[in-house]
Structure formats: C-alpha cells, structure tokens
Design a protein around this nucleic acid. Structure first.
Lengths: 150, 150
DNA sequence: TCACAACGGTTGCAACATGCTACCAAAAGG
DNA sequence: CCTTTTGGTAGCATGTTGCAACCGTTGTGA
C-alpha cells in the first residue's frame, strides 16, 4: 500500500494529482488502460512490473477512483480493471506526456508508437494552452493566483 | 543518482517522458519552476523535500535537459535552476495535471491555487484533445498505432 | 574586519519501497 | 481428471528515501 498523505491537504491541484498518479508505475498503468489493457496479466506482461507491485498499484488506483474492478467482459470468473470517468479524464495528461516525449526523446525518423484519430487515422493536433478568450498562452503569459490561507 | 534505464529504449513516448520526470518530486519541482522558483532553497522550502533528495533530483533534471544551472539573476555568487525550452515544453503536462486535480480533488467551494492568464486575470480554458481537423476527441475516439519492431 | 547567519550542499544511518523468486488456490481448457 | 493459465501472496535481497548532523562558502550587519 502506498501511503503518501503529504500533499493530500495541499492547496495545489498539481500536488494532489501527483499524489494520486505521480509514481513510476501508475501513469504507465493508466496509459495501458487507455490503450485497451484490462486484465492483471495484460498489465503485467506489457509493463514487466513485479506482480506484488502491480497488485499494490492497481489497489491504489482503484481506491483513488481512477480504475474500477468489474466482472470480466468475456464472461469468465476473473475481474478486469477499467478506467472510471475520473480515470478517463486523465486523457489530456497522457496525451501531453506523449507529445512531450515525441518531441524531445525521438529522432525525427525514429519509430515510435503513435496515438491517432480513429476516424481519420491521422496524428492528433498538439495540445494548446488557451486563455478564456482563446489566445494561445506560453508559461510566461500565466501566473499562479495564490490562495491566502485564511 | 536515479538510474532508470528500463524504458529509455521504449518505443512509447509516454514511457520515455515518465522516465524523465515521472517520479514523485520531479513534477513538483517543475511545477515550482513554472511558478517562479529558481533557487535551491526556494524549492526546498516550498516542497519540504530532504536536501539530499532535492540535490539528486535537480541533478537528474539538469542532466535530462529539463532544467539548467545558470548564474544567479541577483548578481550573487550562487546559481539558479531555470527551465530550458525542453522544460518549458512541459507546460501542457503541468496544466493538464492541474486541471485534473481541480476537477477531481476539490469541493466546488474549496480554495485552491489557480493558474490564470496574466493579461486578463481569468482562469484558463480546459485543455482539449483535438484531431488534425479540429474535432474534439475522447479516449474512445483514438487508438495507438503500434510500430512493428523491424 | 570580524562575527554570525544563510546558502547549498554532503555524509551516514534508519526506515521504507521495490524487484525477484518461489509458491499457491481458483478457474479454464482439453 | 489432469494440466495450464490466471491472479495473486510471502519472503528476502536490494535500492531509494527521509532525517539529522555536519561543513565550506557566501552574504550581512555592527
């Protein structure tokens, strides 16, 4: 069991997110879930993670409401792990990580797995951070509005 | 020194990204860097991380090209850690984590720090995953195009 | 200029998390 | 039935983290 309550009470949403999914394996488990993995063995073979660690991570993700354990879709007595709506809401996070990795860790001609639009088969548009009125924002165009603790 | 070469050679961009920044502290260090932290002590006070761990993380992030060590901006003899262009490209990742946290870990009226457009002072628009031709995509609308290893 | 505090670490050690292997019960398949 | 697959658990070696103490350098105030 992972017990990191350090930032549970933080006022920063990033910290709470990292608290929920910010360890080495959880993000890759979620990625696999988006890619269609459902069964314990699928995650285990895909990731090469130790089974006791996978057990712990799946439990944590289920406890955190990211995954839920449901009866197997093929009618067998086993269970499957599927993304909850909260888990599916991580889609932009995974896409952002994917695009960052594509841009900074691969040579232009180096092969890598690609996330494509199912209808057209094309690569996705790069994520853009936009202001309320639709302007494209760089990091320097934004600032954190701190909550005064009182 | 963090030595996780397990996924350095993965074909999946998400895995390489997680390899670079996917541990407990690195993402929070990057968040602080976006929020304006530059000095060792700033990160240390803000995060409450042990100094030896912070030392190791900063070194890893510098080695990974996310941060760089530059002379202090105030003319002192100390050094500062600032985001490289590669580091600044993590902006959508941090914003995605922030928005996910805001939506799923805070009650509607619960106070939390907010990332706002500096010009207008308004909250940012929610990130959208778009197809090449601009349609809004859900996870189910996409599929991973696997690279055949050969 | 001299003392003292702050900065940016390093070192050693204890506690905890992870990875590996072996093992096991229940389910599926033949 | 008998065998294999699945989905774990248990124990142990190793790696990582957190904590406290220490230390040289840099800034600071008298």
């Amino acid at each position: 069991m992972v017990t990191r309550t350090r930032f549970d009470d933080s006022e920063c949403p990033v910290a709470r997110s990292v608290d929920a999914i910010g360890d080495w394996w959880s993000l890759l488990i979620v990625r696999d879930a988006f890619d269609g993995s459902r069964r314990f063995g699928e995650f285990q073979r895909s990731l090469g993670v130790a089974k006791n660690i996978l057990t712990a991570r799946l439990r944590t993700l289920v406890a955190g409401g990211v995954l839920e354990s449901v009866p197997a879709s093929d009618g067998s007595a086993y269970r499957e792990y599927v993304l909850t709506p909260k888990g599916k809401a991580l889609f932009p996070v995974i896409v952002a990580l994917r695009q960052w990795g594509e841009q900074h860790f691969f040579a232009p001609d180096e092969p890598h797995s690609e996330l494509v639009d199912r209808r057209e088969g094309h690569r996705l548009r790069a994520l853009e951070v936009l202001s309320a009125d639709g302007r494209r924002l760089d990091p320097d165009d934004t600032t954190v509005h701190k909550v005064s603790p009182q």
